[in-house]
Amino acid sequence: MKKALSGILLILIMILTVSPVTSAADMQIQIDGVTLVSEVKPEIKNSRMMVPLRVISENLWATVNWSGSDVILKKRDLEVVITLNSNKAAVNGKPVLLDAKPYLKDNRTFVPLRFIAQAFDCNVMYTNAIATIKTKPFYIDGVKITAVHEEFQMTMGSIMAEIKGNAYIEEMYNILKQNKGAEVEAPGNLSPNYRFAEGYDRTIQVYFVSEKGDYVERFSFYSSILSIGESEDKRRILMYADTENKWYTFTSKAYHEILKLNSITSMYGFQTTISNSTP
């Protein structure tokens, strides 16, 4: 009788302690607390999570180039090289052995999540069906920045959006700082609320938000009003740096980089609307 009870107890313990198997379709990836939105799901190969290269590279804001079967990822002074169907990789020229080989499926390249994240100095944790990636926080003059707020000026009213994700926050700041042009005089007849200037329309205001919710830095963009028949290349863009109280020229190319960043953050779920005063 005791042997029978012991056997039943052992079976119950085994049933209770066996972890459920999670399918790839159920798995989620979170970056800096934001659940990644993607139509391409991660896969599990040899107990390793494999993710689409484009999804992970764009959300870490790394560029991707191909050289034969090699994939080259770059972000500032960091270069990661991986090879399709090979466990050999390199980080800044230093050889690394992978425990899961990158592969091509349905014209999409899948790479091991943990290796790519750690190569870009991110922490990775797994909890049940969630893979959590934490990137390096971004600071402005020693103040930790947790979000970017963008106010889009419409014909009537405005829309305020919030962008999360340290890589996106840092890239937004870099675009603004690195593409700041020559200092110029302020446009004439600027209204007190900075909404419109003579010959210019305000388009976007960008705020860098601290952990406490304070605006650490603010930038406003003004686009020149084109006459009927004027081509788009005649448009002039000015940037007002609020903390400096100075006006600068800003290139159209850099302005479109901001719009591209907005598009990507919206696509992957890193951008949310926090207010909308349009009719």
Score class of each variant (00 low, 15 high):
Lys3Gln: 06
Lys3Leu: 08
Ser6Cys: 07
Gly7Asn: 09
Ile8Ser: 04
Ile8Cys: 05
Leu10Val: 07
Ile11Gln: 00
Leu12Asn: 03
Thr17Phe: 10
Ser19Asn: 10
Pro20Arg: 13
Ala25Lys: 14
Ile29Val: 15
Gly33Glu: 06
Leu36His: 05
Glu39Asn: 13
Asn46Cys: 07
Ser47Cys: 03
Met50Gly: 09
Arg54Glu: 10
Val55Arg: 04
Glu58Thr: 07
Asn59Pro: 13
Asn65Ser: 15
Asp70Gln: 15
Lys75Leu: 01
Leu78Gln: 11
Leu78Val: 13
Ile82Thr: 15
Leu84Val: 12
Asn85Gln: 15
Ser86Tyr: 09
Val91Gly: 00
Asn92His: 09
Val96His: 03
Leu98Tyr: 08
Tyr103Cys: 07
Leu104His: 13
Ala117Glu: 04
Ala119Ile: 03
Phe120Thr: 05
Cys122Arg: 01
Cys122Pro: 06
Val124Ala: 06
Thr127Gln: 12
Ile133Thr: 09
Lys134Met: 11
Thr135Val: 00
Val143Arg: 13
Lys144Ala: 05
Thr146Gln: 12
Thr146Lys: 14
Gln153Ile: 15
Thr155Pro: 07
Met160Cys: 06
Ala161Arg: 14
Ala167Lys: 02
Tyr168Gly: 01
Ile169Trp: 03
Glu170Ile: 01
Glu171Arg: 10
Glu183Arg: 08
Pro187Lys: 03
Gly188Cys: 02
Ser191Arg: 14
Asn193Leu: 12
Ala197Val: 08
Gly199Asp: 04
Gly199Trp: 03
Asp201His: 07
Ile204Phe: 10
Gln205Gly: 13
Gln205Met: 14
Val206Pro: 08
Glu211Pro: 12
Asp214His: 10
Phe219Arg: 00
Phe219Gly: 07
Ser223Arg: 14
Ile225Asn: 04
Glu230Arg: 07
Glu230Thr: 09
Glu232Phe: 03
Arg235His: 04
Met239Tyr: 02
Lys246Gly: 01
Trp247Asp: 00
Tyr248Ser: 08
Thr249Ile: 01
Ile258Gln: 06
Phe270Gly: 01
Ser275Thr: 12
Ser277Ala: 04
Pro279Asp: 05
